[in-house]
Amino acid sequence: MTVPPSILQIRGLHKSFGSIEILHGVDLSVKEQELIFLIGPSGSGKSTLLRCCNRLEEPSSGSIIVDGIDLMARNTDINAVRQLIGMVFQSFNLYPHMTALSNVTLALRKVLRKPRKEAEEIGHRALARVNLAEKAGAYPNELSGGQQQRVAIARALALEPKVMLFDEPTSALDPELVGEILETMRELKESGMTMLVVSHEMRFARDAADRVIFMDHGVIVEEGPPEKIFTSPTEARTRSFIEKLTR
């Protein structure tokens, strides 16, 4: 039997802002094609953990290994590694002065130095994957929130990342638009993408997540399959959080 290799391995991750430590030694290993849900109270450090994974935040100590590359090593070209790690933000963060297609192709052209034609072909394919092929020429302010978030997903996908990080991808959306993002994420999962998702969409977590991790006060309190975490958590802190979520 072969154990699927870890795409993302975090060991002993500490992060302080000034003198306040936010992450107190987090260990987490994400296997290939796994979908992990990260839940926890506001301020528990979920976003900080995610942002350390591509060094948008500089970890204070610990190691992060993505697809065999040590992110913290001195000779690591962080811009090269970031292409392996797609990130999707709560507030979409599309470039407002560019069309959907240009949003998707910017890094292909300026980082990977692909010729315009090739970049646009890849861009069109990425937009098609999120069912927005016909919106290639639209500017962000001409798109609904759900469509903007799907363009943002396509922007990350176009670089063929090994793992995708989602930080509350649906919480800025009107309720009726949440479904289309979850549907896109489900399709990504089916296509074999490895995903680490901060979200409180419990129903989606139940059907799609392989593992749910509960964080509180900068540590992982408990982890397990969604059924176990949502219905019979071991830890009291997890239980009270789940109760608040479902109430």
């Binding site: 970031r82 790690i85 599309l94 910017l106 990350a156």
Partner: peptide, 8 residues
């Protein structure tokens, strides 16, 4: 952050 996260 969005731009830097794509490797720019």
């Amino acid at each position: 952050e969005a731009a830097r996260s794509t490797g720019l």
